[in-house]
Design a binder for these strands. Structure first.
Length: 893
RNA sequence: GGGCGGAUAGCUCAGUUGGGAGAGCACAGCCCUUACAAGGCUGGGGUCACAGGUUCGAGCCCUGUUCCGCCUACCA
């Protein structure tokens, strides 16, 4: 006998340990079974489980458990990401607390520190994944800085370099002055802000007059090396070639002509700062202008800033504005909206900054990745995301991959310091190598030093689907599981990660890394706001599992996961699904209460005499099985969850269990056994269907269920298919008639506020076809409608003082005697009458429209004609009853 | 600036080839009926954002408008 309440805590741990001990989650490198593989989006080692992970993990676990049960050789490959900048930041903060910093420690010692930190805290998130039931193959867990993955990174770097797809050069990149490193374009978050447009007067060198330029960043004027105008702009044509003198610092720069300048914006004259603006950079190249870097790496003004040297960039802006104003060079200031780039890790405003960096020439890789999606080798679900993917891929720019931090994959490049011969000189002493070279392969010098930079973390993540499987070695895992089956993740890393995996997978494996990409929603709070620590509106998934149990939480996430829409998370809904678990738990208790000694074996007996209820529920089960499988196949998690909820609660519990109670409590052994067998069978199959969604409670109940299958765990029971039920349309049809009759009586009871304990008599006037069905199943009516002395027949006449309910093919009368209120009943029926009259009007209009009858499909026309006849019948019945009631009333008066 | 998505019951959302709108929660009424009051039964509640169009027929397809959300962008 099961406990009165379901207590998740102990049970969850018990079964997770059991599954691990039995090694169910381990995949086979070689197997006759078809392979099914998902690589986990590796969470940061600095992270702890947030609700987005919880959704992501739940959906993956559902797919994995479903496929494992469905007979696949299933691999869910887990791991974590070293998260270069984020992790370095965390450890640096620790050092700060100890009043030291990484430069004091030195590179080697610092990295040791980070590894120590990783050992201590890096496993946190992995344990949290386990706690929500993730059935990963932990024996294959990987970390992006593992020896093996590092080898893959070097291999890829070297090969891309050798093909000319990786190059080094001095360009404008996004620079975070706080993290002290370059960022890729993607790592910059733009935020729209109300800013100012400053109009600065530049006097001509000869002292006569001036030209005004507009800028949002006045401090950069210190780096100006030209003023540009559009060559077609009549206002300025005559000034081209003239020189102006920059205020305060008195540098003389030319006025140049460039097509890029939009004459309609601002004054039509642009200050050109090649070292601090991407457009100006291009112009600088075109016109051979000097590049003056006025900033230092930590966002302060450099040597080039003259009197402003050493000032913080924003402090400097203020000072410069003041000085320009005082010297009469600030013409005016207007409001101006602009998007400002922030570092995605620390939110500091980034600077376009000129520096020497490594880049991936991305176009050739992107072209292949576009093709893979275009011709369907990679399918993105929901397909709406394909547009974004193409848009980004088609306008992609070279990827800056070097980072000026220490934690990460150090760039496998060395520089020869001596460059003893021409060959070495030709290469600028650059040595790109998989292994650390002892001496320069070109000139033999032993004086080498390695590039200081590390690679973008996403560079190693891009290799994840094959580096984790053993690449560059030719492993069995790789042959078995690559390409993987599906990648499940949020859209926020579609470009960061998904797109880059596709590029790298195609490049190095000649095959797409996954066949499907399922993009799920972002979880917001109940008001639709993005969750963030600063807003204080985060929902802690671990708290949810503690309060409601992991299963209820997981089921909630699945039920929420409709495609293409964000999730507004409400705790109430978790509570609702906890009730669902309670319901399931109680059916299990009901079953356990009805098991008697020796009955378990009887379950194996082939039962022949199935009742209508048995046949109905088995038929419903059959269609639910196919519904669930189809929904999961199409990643419609919410539909699958909804179908299970509906079936188990409202069909199995509300109808079936109630219907078989008379049999279970009765003495007729054969039908008792049939009912019990069917109940246990349907429930067992339901548990199996549910298992991927709520693994713990289903396992707990299943283990105690009589007549379960041979397997030692629900984890490895075969996933149900339509054959687990028995399709029986005839039973469904008959059952619907029985249900209609029950509903009629219940409606009368409910609408007249009669007590559920009050037994009612019922007289049912039927058509030919329904009479026998109802007569055969009269016990259901008695039980479910709490009715007695039921009379069924074609010739039934409405008794006096009876309430009436009408359904297709039946009229139900409930005599009420003293309780009967004739006026209330007339008004009840009149309401029904109005409804049906509206219906009739609607269909009549349709049918009398010749266009409809001639142009609509014949089936639709027929359907409406049938409807019309049925409506008329119903109206007739209602009218007859109203007439009768009126007669009675008159005769009583 | 470009692109994408959304607007359906009080709330959160389904709605799969266009054939008279559904669920869960909330609400109201009757019930401690021996699995379950975390429950049962019954019921009320919608101009499917707005305006046009296509069609015999539109929540669904097309055009435009408004509001909201998101992505993207080298708008000085």
């Amino acid at each position: 006998m099961l406990e009165k309440r379901y207590e998740p805590k102990d049970i969850e741990k018990k079964w997770y340990d059991f599954w691990i001990e039995k090694d169910y989650f381990r995949a086979e490198a070689k197997s006759d079974k078809p392979a099914y593989c998902i690589v986990i989006p590796p969470p940061n080692i600095t992270g702890s489980l947030h609700i987005g992970h919880a959704l992501d993990i739940t959906l993956q676990d559902i797919m994995i458990r479903w496929k494992r049960m469905s007979g696949f050789n299933t691999l869910w490959l887990p791991g974590t990401d070293h998260a270069g900048i984020a992790t370095q930041n965390v450890v640096e903060k620790e050092l700060q607390k100890q009043n030291t910093d990484r430069h004091v420690l030195g590179r080697e010692k610092f990295i040791e520190k980070v590894w120590e930190w990783k050992k201590l805290y890096g496993g946190t998130i992995i344990n949290q994944l386990k706690s929500i039931g993730a059935s990963c193959d932990w024996s294959r867990e990987r970390f992006t800085l593992d020896e093996g993955l590092s080898r893959a990174v070097k291999e890829v770097f070297v090969r891309l370099y050798e093909e000319g797809l990786i190059y080094r050069g001095e360009y404008l990149i996004n620079w975070c002055p706080r993290c002290h490193t370059a960022l890729s374009d993607l790592e910059v978050e733009h935020e729209d802000k109300q800013g100012k447009l400053y109009y600065i007067k530049y006097s001509f060198m000869d002292g006569n007059g001036h030209i005004t330029v507009a800028t949002t960043r006045p401090e950069t004027y210190l780096g100006d090396t030209a003023v540009a105008v559009n060559p077609e702009d009549d206002r300025y044509k005559h000034l081209i070639g003239k020189k102006i003198r920059l205020p305060i610092i008195n540098r003389d720069v030319p006025i140049i002509a460039d097509e890029f300048v939009d004459a309609s914006f601002g004054t039509g004259a642009v200050k050109v700062t090649p070292a601090h603006d991407p457009n100006d950079f291009d112009m600088g190249k075109r016109h051979n202008l000097p590049f003056i870097n006025i900033l230092t790496g930590d966002g302060k003004m450099s040597e080039e800033a003259g009197p402003y040297k050493g000032q913080d960039r924003f402090e400097c802006r203020g000072n410069i504005l003041k000085d320009l104003e005082e010297t009469g060079h600030l013409e005016m200031v207007t409001d101006h909206n602009l998007a400002i780039g922030h570092c995605y890790r620390c939110k500091t405003i980034v600077e376009p900054y000129l520096s020497m960096q490594w880049f991936v020439k991305i176009k050739p890789l992107a072209d292949e990745a576009i093709k893979a999606v275009k011709d369907g080798r990679v399918k993105i679900i929901p397909s709406g995301w394909e547009n974004s993917y193409f848009d980004w891929m088609e306008n992609i720019r070279d990827w800056c991959i070097s980072r000026q931090i220490w934690w990460g994959h150090r760039i496998p490049v060395w520089y020869c310091q001596e460059m003893r011969n021409a060959e070495c000189g030709m290469r600028n002493g650059t040595i790109v190598s998989r292994d650390e070279p002892k001496s320069c392969p070109y000139c033999g010098s032993g004086s080498l030093f390695q590039d200081d930079d590390v690679l973008d973390t996403w560079f190693s993540s891009a290799l994840w689907p094959f580096s984790t499987l053993g690449w560059p070695d030719d492993t069995e895992d790789l042959n078995t599981f690559y390409p993987t089956s599906v990648l499940i993740t949020g859209f926020d890393i579609l470009f960061f990660w998904v797109a880059r995996m596709i590029m790298m997978g195609l490049k190095f494996r000649d095959q797409e890394p996954f066949k499907h990409v399922y993009i799920h929603a972002l979880i917001r709070d109940a008001e639709g706001q993005k969750m963030s620590k600063s807003k204080g509106n985060v929902v802690d998934p671990l708290k949810m599992t503690e309060m409601y149990g992991t299963d209820a939480f997981r089921f909630t996430l699945a039920a929420y996961a409709a495609q293409g829409r964000d999730i507004k998370f409400s705790e109430q809904r978790v509570e609702g699904y906890r009730h669902f678990l309670n319901k399931i738990w109680n059916v299990a208790r009901f079953i356990s209460m009805n098991v008697k000694e020796g009955e378990e074996r009887a379950l194996a007996v082939k039962v022949k005499n199935l009742s209508l209820a048995d046949r109905w529920v088995l038929s419903r089960l059959s269609s639910v099985c196919s519904e669930i499988n189809k929904a999961l196949e199409e990643y419609r998690f919410n539909d699958a969850a909804g179908a299970l909820y509906q079936f188990i609660w409202h069909e199995l519990c509300d109808w079936y269990v109630e219907m078989i109670k008379p049999e279970l409590y009765g003495d007729y052994e054969e039908s008792k056994r049939a009912a019990f067998f069917t109940l246990v069978h349907v429930f067992e199959v339901s548990l199996a269907l549910l298992h991927p969604f709520m693994p713990y409670i289903t396992e707990e109940i299943w283990q105690q269920l009589p007549g379960k299958k041979e397997d030692e765990s629900l984890c490895i029971r075969e996933y149900p298919s339509t054959e687990d039920g028995i399709e029986d349309k005839d039973a469904e049809k008959k059952m619907n008639i029985v249900m209609d009759a029950v509903t009629c009586i219940r409606s009368i009871r409910g609408e007249l506020n009669l007590s559920p304990s009050l037994e009612l008599q019922a007289l049912i006037k039927t058509s030919n076809s329904t009479e026998n069905i109802l007569k055969e199943n009269i016990t259901y009516l008695e039980k479910l409608a709490k009715a007695k002395n039921i009379e069924i027949g074609k010739e039934i006449l409405p008794p006096k003082n009876a309430a009436t309910a009408i359904k297709p093919a039946m009229e139900v009368f409930v005599p009420l005697e003293g309780l009967f209120d004739i006026d209330a009943e007339i008004s009840r029926l009149s309401k029904e009458k109005i409804k049906i009259e509206e219906d009739i009007e609607y269909v009549k209009k349709k049918l009398s429209n010749e266009d409809f009858t001639s142009k609509a499909p014949q089936a639709v026309v027929e359907e409406n004609k049938d409807k019309y006849i049925n409506y008329l019948d119903k109206l007739q019945s209602i009218q007859n009853n109203i007439d009768k009631l009126n007669q009675w009333r008159e005769s009583n008066e």
